[in-house]
Design a protein around this nucleic acid. Structure first.
Lengths: 183, 183
DNA sequence: ACCTGAACACCGTTCAAGT
DNA sequence: ACCTGAACACCGTTCAAGT
């Protein structure tokens, strides 16, 4: 029986979550779908395009409506939603980071952050700074989680949530300083 | 004739700079050295260890003595030095990011930043936030540089240096707010 | 519209053996 | 101390052909 693009993405998400990004190969995914590797190339031009579609789906599923509040509350909420979206799938941060870096994602979380930060000249730089922070922090979190599950280190989720808040607070405070300076 | 560990790293740096991280394979590097792929495993346990050694060398070559000045001037100078170090080699940021993420690097730029930020509870989080910013920004820069050399986009080095300064200023301002709050 | 079959040009890693 | 030779178990991608 035949598959859609969306079936492939759905299956890729499962392989990702169960085995990690390193094991998400075209050949393994094809085997998982009961299909030849070459069949995937009817749906996607190449592996990067497939991964971009998967990253988009991760971001789409994590999207939250904009909350009421001041700009900094909104930016903070958006950053937390992005963190949750990426934490929901194994290696989510690395996946999203590469998709964004290659410019293949259609979801654009940076654009949403730019809107929330508001009309200052540095809005774009500020938004990508937030995004870099979130990607970097969650990337570290997921690395540590993996090391911990391998028994290499002890991992405290409470501490991780705490450092995220503190780091995010630092960046948001920096943007606040910019905003008052720029008007 | 026989090689040292250091010869291998040196050669890897050349392959990296000429062909990029994606083309830096054990087999290609071995061919470049005039040696069988298996020979590399006498020098390094695996590819990750080899890449960590290369990342260490990139960081080592970019290291600068601590300058005089206030803490924020020193942190800014250190962040700029890290940027320059990674910009000096093609895909330097991605290389260093993965080495640091896997915890295999012996160079520890975050520890240096912690020292410069000083004795506040959030020093470690603040330092990794700076590091995430630098890695993310330079990673984007090197992606764009590659896209530009492929003729896909126009790339203005002046703008890139400018966004780096602005973004760094935001994070440093955020840390400054923390420092005054925490004492 | 969706897939097979077969091929091409690659990977990282191990291990006994050589000098 | 440093390397060869050969093998193992993989990759992504292309393309003619099938239904």
């Amino acid at each position: 029986m035949s598959h859609h693009r969306s079936d492939v993405v759905e299956h890729a998400l499962e392989v990702l979550d169960r085995h990690g990004l390193a094991d998400l190969s075209m050949r393994r995914l094809a085997a998982d779908l009961g299909v030849q590797p070459s069949a995937l190339y009817w749906h996607f031009a190449n592996k990067q395009a497939l991964l971009a579609a998967v990253a988009d789906e991760v971001l789409r599923r994590g999207r939250r409506p904009v909350t009421a509040g001041t700009w900094d509350e909104q930016v903070t909420a958006e950053a937390r939603a992005l963190r949750d979206a990426m934490l929901a799938y194994r290696d989510g941060a690395e996946l999203v980071a590469t998709a964004l870096a290659f410019g293949l994602a259609t979801e654009d979380p940076v654009a949403r952050l730019v809107d929330l930060i508001g009309d200052i000249p540095a809005a774009r730089v500020a938004a990508t700074t937030i995004m870099h922070f979130v990607l970097g922090h969650v990337g570290d979190e997921q690395m540590n989680a993996q090391a911990a599950s391998a028994g290499a280190i002890v991992d405290d989720p409470l501490t991780r949530a705490d450092t995220f808040s503190t780091g995010l607070g630092i960046v948001v405070a920096g943007i606040a300083a910019r905003r008052t300076a720029d008007r």
